[in-house]
């Protein structure tokens, strides 16, 4: 039974409907239309866009590529972020300064930083090859070879988002209880053993949270790819987000790109749920 107090929920519900439900439902509707550069409006073509999607090898290849890229970048971000967090966790000279400095990359705009990194990796004029040539290496085809371009994108991603991992893990570290460390010290545990037997298990829940958040963000990588490589050479760095952008906003295949977006959303939800379950099972030892 509706009571007057329930109407206080109305603003929040309306906002939710406007910013989440409407776009989602509209996208679902668009995905069943042939809205295209030549076809205006919402006709109904059934599941034709979804059938086409299953035969779109470029989309599936981009998903595979993204899997590899996300695995590499998030793993590196986690390892580096954890190492940096451990380094400034204990009191050290200039620790506060380092904490701020480590966060700078995360606070910069991805597009602006991608432009700067593209200049750094410019094979004729960029400082990366200049520096390497001083030690007799190069020129390295940073952006014009498939491997080089992939590595370049990974480097930029790791540089930009390791601070995020650092921030979350440092927050986790400072909130750890002291008792287990006292017990470990009494038992004479070495620093390495203390880390693996105490710190790492205690940090598992927050590690899983940080990894999942970064995986979600990494799966949306688009601006770095767009600015640095345009998905190339060939399709070597093309990710699903960038591919959907091309189909939707460059080719103006609105209906098909809506189908791609929804399929991608569903795939990501399923994949990330599975990854979260597996991480919980292996790192924490339970499913929830």
């Amino acid at each position: 039974m509706l009571k007057p107090k329930h109407f206080f929920l109305l603003p929040a519900l309306l906002t939710l409907a406007a910013i989440i439900l409407f776009p989602l439902i509209f996208t679902v509707r668009v995905s069943f239309s042939s809205w295209d550069v030549y076809q205006t409006g919402l006709d109904f073509i059934g599941g034709r866009n979804y059938a086409r999607l299953f035969q779109d090898t470029r989309f599936w290849e981009s998903l595979l590529r993204l899997s590899g890229m996300s695995f590499i970048t998030v793993t590196l971000q986690y390892v580096l972020g954890f190492a940096l967090a451990l380094a400034v966790w204990k009191k050290m000279p200039g620790g506060r300064v380092f904490r701020v400095l480590f966060l700078v990359p995360m606070m910069t705009t991805p597009v602006v930083m991608s432009v700067i990194w593209r200049t750094v990796f410019h094979e004729s004029l960029g400082p990366a090859n200049d520096l390497l040539s001083m030690i007799g290496i190069g020129p390295v085809p940073w952006l014009s070879s498939a491997t080089g371009a992939f590595i370049s994108v990974v480097i930029v991603e790791v540089w930009q988002w390791t601070p995020f991992m650092f921030l979350l893990l440092l927050a986790g570290l400072v909130s750890l209880p002291r008792e287990p460390y006292l017990a470990a010290a009494i038992d004479g545990a070495s620093p390495t053993r203390t880390f693996w037997q105490v710190t790492f298990p205690l940090m598992a829940p927050i590690s899983i949270g940080a990894i999942i958040i970064r995986l979600i963000e990494a799966s949306k990588i688009m601006d770095t790819v767009n600015v640095m490589t345009s998905g190339g050479p060939g399709t070597a760095t093309e990710t699903p987000s960038y591919y959907i952008y091309i189909r939707g906003l460059r080719d103006f295949q609105v209906g098909y790109s809506a189908a791609l977006s929804l399929a991608y959303l569903v795939l990501m939800i399923i994949t990330l749920t599975i990854i979260a379950k597996l991480l919980m099972r292996f790192l924490v030892g339970k499913d929830d």
Partner: peptide
């Protein structure tokens, strides 16, 4: 074939 005569990075 022409890529052989491009400057470094010329393919991008």
């Amino acid at each position: 074939e022409a890529q052989k005569a491009f400057p470094p990075g010329g393919s991008s």
